[in-house]
Design a protein around this nucleic acid. Structure first.
Lengths: 329, 329
DNA sequence: TCCAGAAACTTGAACGTTCCAATCCTGCCT
DNA sequence: AGGCAGGATTGGAACGTTCAAGTTTCTGGA
């Protein structure tokens, strides 16, 4: 039975003290080159790995980051979270952190979970995906000086915390310009009800791009809750009223509905969705693609910046989306 | 500045020793009712939470379970993992465990990650999703007596470890019987190449259901790699050769391809997919639905069984899928 | 009333690491 | 040669918990 390899084992093997081994690990520069080499050899020979629990007891840092996994909402847009989490895990790993999952059914429970995770596991930071107007979660975390980032900018201008987001307006603007370039003039927009930050942002991109091209957007947009059926309904409405030759949608779900509504219409109506979900790839829907891996990486960057010393408040990051061109536009 | 609340704080407050507090937490039955009440009151009053790192140092148990998050493969079937992970997080939480994510690009790296996670974080167990023929990962874990479960039965009969799986054959059989009941006789099958355990299993369910109904399945099946384009290609082939009136597919991707191939065919060909992905729900595809939440829950059950005492090898679990009826069949 | 035995509770010690303060070198200056 | 500064290294203590082995308190039977 192999003895457990601790820092003491390494120390004995390299004929130095425990503290010197610890120094090789944490502040290599203060150890003489020759000694350091000897210790590193011992570490490799013995396959030593620093015990995180013991380390945590002294330092109070767990090198753990919490991220929430949702109960897959309507589904289509769910895979966004999936890809984001993967990116998070990958980048965090490279930075020496690990990702811990949690779920919650409402804000109160989520906050209770924060308390539990912080108290029991001493989590270092939280990553929140999507925040809403007057979010109690960010407030709770900020009040307690718990490091966190949000993927999604804060829609209340009130409190400024580190965030990473994708420029949705730039995405819909790009989509709209592509349609304009293709000769379209009557370009409609199907989006979410006014008041949702993300929805307003995406609509603004479409509107501004039209205006910049000298096209009046009045009457060309419709709003609804997300969903395929809703997208189909509103597209029928648009066809019957303003007869657009193209449409930009705030989500792939809406776009998919629109696609069903225009089946058989001639000349074909161009459709562009948002999020570049697997479904879009599957049905050949052109869609605005968010750089999710990049977004996750920047989240980790911001957090490690805060955690590993940098005392300055980190700068928010706004990433540019791209257009995944397929055959619907 | 509030002092950190430790077991000693609680002990002082309840006028008992540290150990008694510890006993209230871990073996309440050996503490006198009145004392226990006093301690519990103190715990609540102070908002005490046991520090996991310290606990781990003594017990060697981290109450952490590792699960892998994949770089979202083709996409459509990706959301299966998503839902499974959510279920895992939820059930693990209820059992007092937390889920830690990791990624890896190949088996060697994955095994290296196991070593790291075990050495550094002292993980309690692993959950593997999908194992292949002669999987080096299960072997490595078994050799070191690391507790683990696989979601997906072991296809090598060799070593028996705890597993949870969904009875794919039962799913395709159920789908096939539904089509038979609807009067279909020429029911085709589009699946994966022979040799993939999961694929063979799903094909067997279709074949056996046909035979049981006195229908000869010969010539009615096609095999290919997963993917929409492939599904479309093979469906065209089937239409041109055996002209089936219905088809059962091994995945929603294949089924989606089949749907595209039959567009306009009259009378309409019935299609049933597998996995009940968001895409299936979106396009109204009838599909075999795996009880993913249940599967995750049973994985946790098996693990906690092994971890919390039960010395008997736990029984594998085979769950029954159901049919999500929509309008393609 | 006393005592044995069980139940209830307490007290050091230990888990593996890092912090802190102290000691030991080494080379340089006088 | 002696003293000294500064780098390199060391040993004790502490983080918060549970284990193991104690000590005290209670219970009931003679």
């Amino acid at each position: 039975m192999a003895e457990k390899v601790t820092i003491a084992t390494v120390a004995r093997h390299a004929r130095v003290s425990r503290q010197t081994v610890s120094n090789v690990l944490n502040s290599p520069h203060i150890v003489r080159q020759e000694t350091r080499q000897r210790v590193e050899d011992a570490i490799n020979a013995l396959g030593y790995r620093a015990n995180q629990a013991a380390r945590q007891m002294r330092t109070g840092r767990s090198r753990l980051i919490a991220a929430r996994i949702d109960p897959t909402r309507d589904g289509i847009n769910g895979s966004v979270l999936d890809r984001f989490l993967h990116g998070l895990t990958e980048t965090a790993d490279a930075a020496g952190y690990r990702v811990l999952l949690y779920t919650a059914t409402d804000d109160d429970r989520e906050i209770a979970t924060y308390g539990d995770l912080l108290g029991t596991y001493e989590l270092d930071a939280f990553v929140l995906v999507g925040t809403k107007h007057g979010d109690p979660r960010t407030e709770w975390l900020a009040d307690r000086d718990v490091p966190f980032v949000t993927f999604g900018r804060p829609w209340d201008a009130l409190d400024a915390h580190p965030w990473v987001d994708v420029d949705g307006a730039a995405g819909t603007a790009q989509a709209t310009r592509r349609l304009l370039d293709a000769g379209h003039r009557r370009i409609a927009f199907i989006g979410w009800p006014v008041g949702s930050g993300v929805g307003d942002d995406r609509r603004a991109g479409w509107r501004d791009a039209l205006r910049a091209a000298g096209v009046d957007p009045t009457g060309l947009h419709r709003e609804t809750e997300d969903g395929i059926a809703e997208g189909e309904r509103l597209m029928h409405d648009l066809l019957a009223t303003v007869a657009p030759s193209a449409v930009v949608c705030a989500s792939d779900s809406l776009a998919l509905g629109a696609l069903q509504a225009i089946r058989g219409v001639d000349p074909p109506v161009s459709v562009i969705g948002f999020d570049d979900t697997p479904v879009a790839a599957a049905v050949g829907l052109t869609s605005v693609s968010q750089p999710l891996g990049e977004a996750a990486a920047r989240c980790v960057d911001l957090l490690t910046g805060v955690l590993d010393g940098d005392h300055e408040t980190p700068t928010p990051v706004l990433l540019q989306p791209s257009l995944a061109l397929r055959h619907t536009a």
